[in-house]
Simulated scan of single mutants.
Amino acid sequence: MTDVSKPRREPPVSPHLLTGGLISPPLWRWHLTMLTSILHRATGVALYAGGLMVAAWAMALAQGPERYGQVKALLGSWPGKVVIFGLTLSCFFHLANGVRHLVWDTGRGLDVKSANASAVAALAFAVAATLAVWWIAGLTGAL
């Protein structure tokens, strides 16, 4: 039986719902480690899509020269190259950020200064490695 003499209390409201509107400032401010966390998830999804692309490429290879030529033409077009460039960048960032997480699992690098430095390192590695791979691909005629 409920006590009707006590007023009904409303459930607690998340602070996200109380702030960030037109009147009050947002509760969270963006920072580098937040960005890299979101990018890690996004690049994981991109790599999944890239895996599906590799599967489609392999199936086209098994279906014969005509079908393989169609897929090769699609991947060799400018939009295809942009997608593959993005997948290369995603792969290297996801790799670097995964290593960063492995280091964190040992209890190291968790302070703000180290976390920010490792975020910059992961981003820099991803960009440098992607550009290096595409530069080598250009030199060897793979593009």
Rank of each mutant, 00 (worst) to 15 (best):
A42Q: 10
A55P: 03
V45Y: 09
T43H: 06
G69F: 02
V13C: 07
V54R: 03
M53Y: 01
A49H: 01
A62V: 01
L52G: 10
V13R: 13
E66W: 03
L32R: 04
A46F: 03
I38D: 12
G44P: 00
A60R: 00
W28E: 15
I38S: 13
P25K: 08
H40T: 06
M53K: 00
H31V: 09
L27G: 07
H31A: 13
W30D: 15
V45L: 14
V45N: 10
W28Q: 15
R29A: 11
Q63D: 15
G21D: 09
A56D: 12
S14D: 15
W57S: 10
G69Q: 04
L35V: 15
A42L: 14
G69N: 04
G51V: 00
S37W: 12
P12E: 13
Y68V: 04
Q63F: 01
T43I: 03
G51I: 01
R67T: 11
V13Q: 11
L32Q: 04
L35P: 00
W57I: 03
R67Y: 00
L17I: 11
I23E: 12
A55G: 09
G64H: 02
P26C: 07
M59P: 01
A60I: 00
T43W: 02
L27A: 13
G44S: 06
Y68N: 12
L18Q: 14
A55M: 11
I38N: 09
T19D: 10
L35M: 10
V45W: 09
A58Y: 08
A60K: 04
Y48E: 10
P15K: 01
A56K: 05
G50F: 04
S14H: 13
G20A: 06
L35T: 12
A56V: 07
L47A: 03
I23P: 01
T33S: 11
M59Q: 13
G51S: 06
G44C: 03
L18N: 12
P12V: 11
T36Q: 00
R41P: 00
L18E: 14
L61H: 13
P15F: 01
T19I: 04
L18P: 01
T19G: 05
I23A: 14
R41N: 08
V54F: 05
G51N: 06
A49R: 03
S37C: 07
G51F: 07
V45I: 15
S14K: 05
L17V: 11
E66N: 06
W30E: 15
G64P: 02
A56Q: 06
S24T: 14
S14F: 07
L27S: 12
A42K: 06
P15C: 04
G64K: 04
G44R: 05
H40M: 09
G51W: 04
T33D: 10
Y48R: 08
S14W: 10
M59G: 11
A58H: 09
I23Y: 11
M34F: 09
